[in-house]
Amino acid sequence: MARPMVHAEGVRKHFGRLDVLKGIDLTVERGEVCCLLGPSGSGKSTFLRCINHLEKVDGGRLTVDGDLVGYRQAGNRLHELREAEVAERRRAIGMVFQRFNLFPHLTALENVTEAPVRVAGVNRTDARAEALRLLERVGLADRADHYPAQLSGGQQQRVAIARALAMKPKLMLFDEPTSALDPELVGDVLDVMRGLAADGMTMVVVTHEIGFAREVGDTAVFMDEGVVVEAGDPRRVLVEPEQERTRAFLSKVL
């Protein structure tokens, strides 16, 4: 069997005295779309941010494509890597944020070409052509020269997806990608994500879109209070959950 894309064993994280993650075990296979669901404060976003080391893990093992994220193992200790080494590993992991976080001083096109040119060393012409192709893919080729402030939330989020894809990631992380959008703009973003999933991209998606999780997700993981309560086929977990906590959550959001 191929190496899993994401493998977490007993991942722990605390902020001060608050335990946010209390030992998360989770495996995401290649090409799998894994949706993380749960009430706010359940630790799902924190776990997602641990995957690309935006948050430091306090204990446990977390690997992406077999490599520890942000750490080097020596004996039974994990030594944190230098920023430059972490940056190197992050290149292969794309991330899309709830608040888009586009660079406001750069146009949509420049947002997409920035990292390939400055980090991956792609020449400007190639980066530009690839960026236009990606913007085309998310349906925004005609907005290439617009600044983020001139785009709607849904358009900004699709540029953000194109920006992450420009680094040719093997894994894409989505942190509530549609939560900050007006309802009528959610569909366009989900369509782009559906397309990505169909192309075989491995995705971990923190979302409140139960419909999306049921339709596109290969697995649904329900988290609460820092633990995985229930995981499995979304058509089972989100339709006939075994756990009372999952049922209680679903009855509130559906």
Partner: peptide, 27 residues
């Protein structure tokens, strides 16, 4: 400058100095 800008730059594999020069300082 919104800390989300630094996170976005880091998630693209930009190192701290490059992030400061290209993303944070211009803003």
């Amino acid at each position: 400058v919104d800390p989300g800008q630094t996170e976005a730059a880091h998630s693209l594999g930009m190192k701290p100095a490059l992030t400061m020069r290209r993303i944070v300082l211009p803003q």
